[in-house]
Amino acid sequence: MIWQLDLIILVLVIVCAIAAINVKDLLSAAILLGAYSFLLCLLWAIMGAVDVAFTEATVGAGVSTVFCVAAVFHTTRRTTD
């Protein structure tokens, strides 16, 4: 495990998480969640849990992002809060 790489990815995970909560555009929030999932997938792969990384990449970054975008498609993009 390379701690420099680990640190960079962990910081990016936190940045993505905070940005996904704070962003006003719901479509951006969906895409940020996908990026968050993909960074987590990288973390699992670094830790050697390749099966979990694969699941995270397919379910978290792949299909759930599509579901979020499909849900945003039927509502407004701007959030009020």
Partner: peptide, 21 residues
Amino acid sequence: SPGGGFQGGVVLGAAVILFAI
């Protein structure tokens, strides 16, 4: 190798979703 029912099933479903999109 890494993989199995869950991952393969999700990728199969994603292929159909890609067709739908």
